[in-house]
């Protein structure tokens, strides 16, 4: 029977993302933080050398984490571990796959390694998640083999406004595709700069073909529930947890608000006495050249 066995199929790649739905994926930089995240009910952790807020503050070139940090986090928890590689840096991806990471994030939070090409993600057994600001960008990443997408938001800001903009854009564009006629889909594919077959699939099914999480600026339980009500499948919280006053309590509160995203009484209860939230940044205060969401093509 085992001769029918196949690893690395699209279905097991997209399937892991299906299992993460309704959950919170948390950025962590140490084994200790990873355990706090797991205890709080995170469905996965993103192993990093620095959270986006610190990457933003430090400037310079941001790269994949030191394998020692990734190893320590992989050993510390039993939930899936994700890690970020630079856009287009397929060798960082190969290294992270060899470390046993469960999902790779080809991420605009790190400094891009290639300004024209993303990684050919079909070459890998490990699945990839990629960022998007709109439907065309999501479908280009899926065409390259991404098994999950996330709207980008603006990482490291604690400001949800860009996450909202990107989620609404994707949702509106899907609604638009559903409403147009067959021959218009060819022009839509051209406008979206995405493969016709994927554009047609979205028009026929009224949704993305893979799971879509929200990322980039979520800092409170209400932020997480807002993104869920806007239609995402789950949330990434980066700097918002471990840059706050009481990470364990805030992490658990965000997990509960993500599950009970339509229950205002529960969101109100878990939002009480969480201590200091991370200090946010207004998007207009960030020079265009430092906006991470502009990275990716």
């Amino acid at each position: 029977m085992s001769d029918t066995s196949m690893i690395g199929t699209l279905r097991v790649k997209t399937g892991l993302a299906e299992m993460l739905k309704g959950g919170v994926i948390m950025d962590v930089v140490t084994a200790e933080q990873a355990r706090i995240a797991e205890d709080a009910g995170a469905v996965a952790v993103m192993s990093l050398e620095r959270v986006p807020a610190d990457i933003r503050a430090a400037g310079g070139v941001a790269r994949m984490a030191d394998p020692t940090i990734v190893d320590a986090i992989v050993k510390a928890v039993s939930i899936p571990v994700m890690a970020k590689c630079r856009i287009g840096h397929f060798v960082e991806a190969q290294v992270l796959q060899s470390l046993g990471v469960d999902y790779l994030d080809e991420s605009e939070v790190l400094t891009p390694a290639d300004e024209e090409h993303h990684i050919n993600k079909w070459d890998f057994t490990v699945p990839f998640v990629c960022g998007c600001r709109n439907l065309g960008e999501a479908l280009r990443r899926i065409a390259e083999g991404a098994a999950m997408v996330r709207t980008k938001g603006e990482p490291g800001t604690g400001n949800v406004v860009e996450a909202v903009r990107h989620m609404r854009t994707v949702t509106d564009e899907i609604a638009w595709l559903k409403g147009i006629r067959g021959e218009q889909l060819f022009a839509a594919a051209k406008d979206l700069e995405a493969p016709y077959e994927l554009v047609k699939w979205v028009a026929d099914n009224g949704r993305l073909p893979v799971v879509n999480f929200s990322a980039g600026g979520i800092a409170t339980p209400a932020d997480a529930a807002l993104m869920m009500q806007l239609g995402c499948d789950g949330v990434f919280v980066g700097s918002g947890i471990f840059k706050s006053g009481d990470p364990a309590k805030r992490a658990k509160a965000i997990v509960e608000a993500t599950t009970h995203f339509e229950d205002a009484d529960i969101i109100a209860r878990v939002s009480r006495d969480l201590g200091e939230a991370m200090v946010g940044i207004n998007i207009s205060d960030i020079p265009d050249s430092e906006r991470m969401q502009e990275r990716g093509w």
Binding site: M1, S2, T4, S5, M6, I7, G8, T9, R11, V12, G15, L16, P80, Q97, G100, V101, D102, Y103, T125, V126, P127
Partner: peptide, 12 residues
């Protein structure tokens, strides 16, 4: 094992 070992197979 980890995700890279995830698989599909026919079952009776």
């Amino acid at each position: 094992g980890r995700q890279v070992e995830s698989f599909e197979a026919d079952l009776d």
